[in-house]
Computed example of a mutant assay.
Amino acid sequence: MPTGLALRDPRQQLFDAAERVLVRDGPTGLTSRAVTTEAGVAKGVLHRYFADFDAFLTGLVLDRIARVKAQATALGETAGTGTVADNLTSALMTSFDPVMVSIVALIIARDELRTRLRTAGTARFPLVGEGSAMIAGYLTAERELGRIAPDADIDTVAPTLIGAAHLLFTERKDSPPEPEAVRKVVTTVLAGAMR
């Protein structure tokens, strides 16, 4: 591998490569050598920025969690516009891309990664918990606007939506579910919570 190439953002280049390897080869295929090969850099580049491979994986998941938090802000801004079901369907379609589904599998597969993520202050089930918080925040905003029933149990509805969507997306290996299938899950879960 060439070692004298200047990298624009080496951490992001490595994260992008790891996401491609993870989606293509799964958690067992995600190794430091596979990541650096995919990124087209020398193996030492990864260790220049991360203490070890688990530190790299922790950074990868935290990067994805930051994206979920940014999406939560965008979803919150849709409160009071469109329909609740359409807003949630769109958010779930965006959240559950193949990378997120693969990262959840990675978190489940690696004990040390889960330990490090909890130490970093993530949700009890990293990434899934942040997704649930995104949905709960949005539903709370909609309840304040009167579009969700005042007695709706948001702390149950939000993780139920995330869990049901996760199952829907993991059942399909080759392509994501159609938006209408996701919308059906959303409207079914929300049935008792709507005004």
Rank of each mutant, 00 (worst) to 15 (best):
P2Q: 00
L5C: 02
A6D: 11
R8C: 03
D9E: 12
Q12W: 01
Q12M: 02
L14E: 04
E19P: 00
V21A: 01
V21C: 01
V23L: 09
R24N: 06
R24H: 13
G26N: 03
T28R: 10
V35C: 00
V35F: 01
E38M: 14
K43W: 10
H47T: 11
H47V: 06
H47G: 06
R48H: 15
Y49W: 15
D52I: 08
F53L: 11
A55Y: 02
A55N: 02
T58G: 03
L60E: 15
V61K: 05
V61W: 12
D63I: 06
D63S: 15
A66Q: 15
R67Q: 15
Q71N: 06
A72I: 07
L75M: 05
E77C: 02
A79Y: 11
A79L: 10
A79N: 07
G82D: 13
V84E: 08
L88F: 11
L88P: 03
S90K: 13
M93L: 12
M93C: 08
F96V: 07
D97V: 08
P98N: 02
V101A: 06
V101M: 04
S102I: 09
I103H: 02
I103A: 03
A105F: 07
A105D: 14
L106P: 00
I108E: 14
I108Q: 09
R116F: 10
L117E: 09
T119Y: 10
T119K: 09
T122A: 07
T122I: 10
F125Y: 03
V128W: 11
E130A: 07
G131E: 14
G131V: 09
M134L: 14
I135R: 01
A136T: 07
A136C: 04
L139G: 04
R143D: 12
R143W: 14
G146S: 08
R147M: 04
I148E: 09
V157A: 04
V157S: 00
T160H: 10
L161V: 10
I162H: 01
A165N: 07
H166R: 11
R172I: 05
P176N: 02
E178Y: 09
E178Q: 06
P179A: 05
A181I: 08
A181M: 10
R183V: 07
A191E: 14
A191N: 04
A191H: 11
M194F: 04
M194H: 01
R195H: 10
R195T: 13
